[in-house]
């Protein structure tokens, strides 16, 4: 360990990289498959934001709950949702995480503490207060994390939830993934405060802003607020300043971005590259070990796409099932 200046073991570093690489490859592959016309519906890709999901989720186990967003694939993967089931869901197949009934915007796996991607902006914040409340009553030390974008941060549900979590001292973390845009609208236009830390203060919550392209910064800041919440110290807000590499959804021409913005970000602000450079140049992980992960992940994604394409469609009777638990 002499060459490892990081607060994580070599195995943990490789695990973090594997999570981020899995998310990246999953999303890059969807981008390609979507363009072929094989994937139905709306797909919102998380590429560029991997360090946020990975850095936060490394502190969680299955008893901890997360409430995700429309841009949820990265949260799912980092929380341990099966990649094959996710892919099959996105293809609308019966082997999918939601048996093909939810699609990209609604992937959930409650057994993993993943309470669902969500098509309604801000909807996760009240739900995660419920998760925090349940954890408190059960006394199991579980925490709840709700993710929302800079855009969704302006939903009443989010603001009400911050107050609720504060007065009830819930073990809940509000994570703003601030990628600068809500669809085509900039955060500068839509959000009145310059820093979400200021907003948190207005609700009596401690807040911290980190560079969301820096895995280690996210990991450290998340570790602190999560530990505090677990120990009964109450809710907090974590703002991750991040980047969305693709359009809002697949098919978005992105004319609202600056010329060359995507290229610049891919070149200079790619959280995966930044991570790989840091750990390899410190000598904590070798380049060979990184490329082994790359190859394994590439094979996993290939297999997931292959099996999703070959998987059976839902049978027509599935249309009518599972509206209620009991009829």
């Amino acid at each position: 360990m002499t060459n490892n200046p990081f607060p994580l073991s070599k195995d943990e570093l490789l695990a973090a990289y594997r999570t981020m690489r899995t998310i990246r490859d999953f999303e890059e592959r969807l981008h390609v498959e979507f363009a072929k016309g094989d994937i139905p519906g709306f797909v919102h890709l998380y590429a560029g934001e991997e360090a946020c999901a990975a850095g936060i989720m490394m502190h969680l186990t299955d008893i901890d709950r997360i409430a995700s967003t429309h841009r949820g694939h990265g949260h799912c993967i980092a929380k341990g949702v099966d990649v094959h089931e996710m892919m099959a869901e996105i293809y609308g197949k019966s082997t999918g995480a939601c048996r093909g009934k939810g699609g990209s915007m609604h992937i959930a796996d409650l057994s993993k503490g993943m309470m669902g991607a969500n098509g309604i902006l801000g909807a996760g914040a009240p739900l995660i207060c419920g998760a925090g409340l349940a954890a408190k009553f059960r006394g199991d030390g579980g925490v709840g994390i709700t993710f929302f974008g800079d855009g969704a941060s302006n939903q009443g549900t989010v603001l009400e939830s911050m107050n609720l979590a504060a007065i009830w001292n819930l073990p809940v973390i509000f994570v703003v993934e601030n990628n600068g845009y809500a669809e085509s609208t900039s955060v500068e236009y839509a959000t009145a405060v310059d820093s979400y830390v200021d907003r948190a203060a207005g609700f009596g919550l401690p807040g911290v802003t980190v560079d969301g392209t820096d895995f280690f910064a996210v990991h450290e800041a998340a570790g602190e607020v999560i530990r505090r919440a677990r120990e009964g110290g109450g809710p907090a807000l974590l703002e991750c300043k991040t980047i969305r590499f693709f359009g809002h959804f697949e098919g978005d021409a992105q004319t609202y971005k600056a010329k060359g913005e995507n290229d610049y970000n891919r070149e200079n602000r790619d959280c995966l590259r930044i991570f790989a450079n840091r750990v390899t140049s410190a000598g904590a992980v070798s380049e060979a070990e990184i490329s082994l992960v790359d190859r394994e992940v590439a094979a996993l994604i290939d297999a997931a796409v292959e099996s999703a394409k070959g998987a059976p469609l839902p049978s027509p009777r599935e249309l009518l099932t599972d509206v209620y638990v009991a009829y």
């Binding site: 845009y181 809500a182 085509s184 609208t185 900039s186 955060v187 500068e188 004319t255 609202y256 913005e261």
Partner: peptide
Amino acid sequence: GEDIVGGAGAPGE
């Protein structure tokens, strides 16, 4: 409404 113009405050069009 939301994005009825689009690009508000953004560097592009």
